[in-house]
């Protein structure tokens, strides 16, 4: 093992004073051009440039994607989380700033981008978001000023890599694993094991 991992370090006293946390960002990824941005996770970063870079290098490589969308956690406003789908509403109007609307189709689910509304404030944006996108099918509506949403796109700077990435996905091993098991187990056992595999592990 490398030297840095091997040696024992000496410390005097306590840790240096903490630095506190950087700004919190919410990250969504887009699987294909024109498709909706889907919640992927979170990250902390001091500013938007770094947050975008980190969103690409982490969530942008979790699965094939063409872009990431981020906003600060404190830039979002969520409606109440309904126990039942939110009732359809009829809030109308198109005055004010553009807001990006994300919807959650059931508690425990992720938020997915639904579209834009215009509204003078978050409360109205939520009401208009429910009217435009809820359709009696979502438990939560999230709105973020479009100006507070930032996107990284594959066409500007690569996100997804073109070289072989099969080493970092389960499917990159399935065929080999199956072939190797054949020398240890007969086909019937192997089928049962594979069924268990899917139940337990995937």
């Amino acid at each position: 093992m490398s030297k840095r991992r091997h040696i024992t370090y000496e410390f005097d006293g306590d840790l240096p004073e903490g630095t506190g946390d950087d700004a919190h960002w919410v990250v969504y990824t887009r699987k294909n051009a024109g498709g909706p941005a889907r919640w992927a996770g979170y990250l902390d970063a001091v500013d938007v440039d770094l947050a975008l870079q980190y969103s690409r290098e982490h969530y942008g490589l979790d699965e094939a994607c063409v872009g990431t969308l981020i906003h600060r956690h404190d830039a979002m406003t969520d409606s109440e989380y309904g126990l039942e789908p939110l009732s359809p509403a009829s809030a109308k109007g198109d005055d004010g700033e553009p807001w990006v609307v994300f919807v959650q189709k059931g508690r425990g689910n992720i938020h997915i981008e639904a579209g834009l509304v215009h509204a003078p404030n978050a409360r109205t944006a939520i009401a208009r978001g429910i009217a435009s996108f809820a359709g009696g099918k979502v438990t939560n509506v999230r709105v973020v000023l479009q100006a507070d949403c930032h996107e990284a796109m594959q066409e500007d700077l690569a996100i997804w890599r073109e070289h072989d990435l099969s080493y970092k996905y389960a499917r990159g091993y399935s065929k080999d694993v199956r072939a190797k098991w054949r020398t240890f187990r007969d086909e019937a056992d192997l089928e049962g094991y594979r069924a268990g595999d899917i139940k337990e592990h995937f």
Binding site: Y169, A170, G172, Y173, D176, V177, W181, F184, H201
Partner: peptide
């Protein structure tokens, strides 16, 4: 985690 496990299984095999 599915990748981690599959990669481990491949190594053991």
């Amino acid at each position: 985690e599915a990748f981690h496990f599959k990669s481990g299984e491949d190594m053991v095999l």
